[in-house]
Simulated scan of single mutants.
Amino acid sequence: MAIFLHEGDLPGDVFAPGPIAVDTETMGLHPYRDRLCLVQLADGQGDEHLVRLAGNYAAPNLKAVLADPARLKLYHFARFDLAVLEHYLGIEAGPVFCTKIASKLIRTYTDRHGLKDLLRELLGVEVSKQQQSSDWGAAVLSDAQKDYAASDVRYLHRAHVILAERLAREGRTAMAQSCFDFLPTRARLDLAGWAENDIFAHM
């Protein structure tokens, strides 16, 4: 297992066929204010690739992978990542499987749906969130930051398999897929100013 840090773009086709786990690191939680700094990707074969974007978002190889309609993208809380990727890279980074939504649909016995809690239960692994709120725009990323960023995509393939099986077991696969299909639109609603408003509510 290795972590590869790339500046500005992926070097080329570095992934095996199949789903790609994706995550992002930004300067904060407001896409228009807080720039996209890092995109993390993994194909489930043991390596993680981190692409640092220092204000230049051309990144043609990265965009090609993320926008490939033949590759399933695995996220945890896809709503945020999809909004950031569309705003900065100008792409719809789907099709989507969101482990957080899947967790909420089948782990109805808990209100703990963060990645740390999900991985602890499903896989028996512990991930540190210590670097979550750190300076992702720094000129040099620390080893701790790189390992944290990589860990956010390292286990998503294994979690995806278990969650998909449980969705099928509980008869909620179609419901989950409808949610996943709606996520790009949900992200665009966030970007357009409806982040805090439920447009389906009566009032």
Rank of each mutant, 00 (worst) to 15 (best):
L62K: 10
N61Y: 08
L10I: 15
Q45E: 15
M1A: 14
V96S: 02
A54N: 06
P95Y: 00
G124V: 13
I20Q: 05
D147K: 14
L183S: 06
L122K: 02
V84H: 01
E121Q: 09
D147E: 15
I106T: 14
M27Y: 07
H49L: 12
D43W: 02
Q177S: 07
V14Y: 01
K104Q: 14
R158G: 10
Y109V: 08
F200G: 12
P184C: 10
D81R: 05
G114A: 04
H113N: 05
R188C: 06
L191A: 02
L50S: 00
I162P: 07
A21T: 08
L191R: 11
A78P: 00
E121Y: 11
M1Y: 10
S142K: 06
E170S: 13
D143K: 04
M1N: 08
P60C: 05
D34H: 07
L141A: 04
A192H: 15
R154Q: 13
H160F: 09
D117E: 13
A16D: 12
G18H: 09
L105I: 00
A16F: 05
Y109G: 10
L156G: 00
I199W: 10
V125Y: 09
Q145S: 04
E196L: 14
P31K: 03
Y32P: 05
A102D: 01
D68N: 14
A168L: 15
A67L: 09
R154M: 08
A168N: 13
I101G: 01
G8Y: 00
L189T: 07
V84K: 04
T108W: 06
I101Q: 15
